[in-house]
Structures are given as structure tokens and as C-alpha cells.
């Protein structure tokens, strides 16, 4: 180390990719998280990276299951998790209501216990643990969310 690199040295990930499409029901959530855990394990992701990727998928898919198809027959959630040497790319597609988590209001993190609401916390956590968020809502009805978590994060 020559001192100019402030980032913690990290091993590049082994390339791996897995996909799973399920119906948007709570029973399917563990299967989606299993896919995430498997890719993180085989790619050699460190515990913090694996935690963050799991959290992002958990929050987004949990939200889709609870609200994405409200008033509709629950449709699909299509998950793809891809490990590249320097990043993990998560793609989640659904056919429910449009919801861009970048636009969700930030929760009041300083509220007292009595006033504290947990609504909105999931979106805040996703925004905190990933580096890039892209969201497209097609006129045809498909919503496509892409989340990128870099292996080395700037502190």
C-alpha cells in the first residue's frame, strides 16, 4: 500500500448468477433470499456485502408482496442476482403498481419512541446499503428495478 488508497482492500468476486421467478406471496420470500445467499456464498462475498444484498432484496420484495399488487391478483416477482468481480447487480421485475423507492419520503430518524413510525424505513435502508438505483416502469405494465452494490464502498 502506498498510502493514497483509502479503500479497504477487497477480493474480487467470482462471477456467478442466479434467477428465480415466484408469485408475490410471503411464503415465497425465503426462496428469494436463498437465491441471494447462494450467489453471495459462491462468489466469495464478505459478510457485510452479503448482508447488504440480502437486506436490499428482502426490503424490496417484502414491499412488493405487501403492497405491489394491492387490489390486484398477486402476479410475479422475477429476481436476478449477478456477482461481477467488483459489484453485485440485483434486478427485480414485477407487473404490479408503479413504485419508485427513490421517491419515497425519508423517515424521521430522530423521532422519539412514542412518535416513531417504521413505515418508510425499508426504502431508507435500501437506499443506504446500495450504490446505484435505476427504475423503469413500462407502459406495458412491467416495472424493472436495478440495484448495484459495489464490493468496495467509499466511506
Amino acid at each position: 500500500m502506498n498510502g493514497k488508497d483509502a479503500e479497504v482492500a477487497t477480493m474480487p468476486l467470482v462471477r456467478d448468477r442466479a434467477e428465480l421467478t415466484v408469485g408475490a406471496t410471503l411464503e415465497a420470500l425465503p426462496r428469494l433470499l436463498d437465491v441471494v445467499d447462494r450467489v453471495c456464498r459462491t462468489s466469495g462475498a464478505d459478510p457485510d456485502l452479503a448482508f447488504d444484498v440480502r437486506l436490499a432484496v428482502d426490503e424490496v420484495c417484502g414491499n412488493l408482496i405487501a403492497h405491489g399488487y394491492r387490489g390486484l391478483v398477486p402476479g410475479p416477482i422475477a429476481l436476478s442476482v449477478e456477482a461481477q468481480p467488483d459489484r453485485v447487480v440485483i434486478r427485480i421485475a414485477d407487473r404490479g403498481h408503479r413504485f419508485d423507492l427513490r421517491e419515497a419520503p425519508s423517515p424521521d430518524l430522530l423521532a422519539s419512541v412514542e412518535d416513531r413510525q417504521v413505515g418508510g424505513l425499508g426504502c431508507h435502508l435500501v437506499r443506504s446499503v446500495v450504490d446505484d438505483i435505476d427504475y423503469r416502469s413500462d407502459p406495458g405494465g412491467e416495472n424493472r428495478l436495478t440495484l448495484v452494490r459495489h464490493v468496495a464502498r467509499k466511506q
Partner: peptide
């Protein structure tokens, strides 16, 4: 500890 502590921090729960 670990990631759980980080989630509590990010959520402001370590203050309440």
C-alpha cells in the same frame, strides 16, 4: 454486532 448493529444505526434505533 455486525450487520445488525449497522441496520440499527442506519435506522436511528441506537438513539432510542
Amino acid at each position: 454486532s455486525g450487520g445488525v448493529r449497522r441496520v440499527l444505526d442506519l435506522s436511528g434505533f441506537t438513539g432510542i
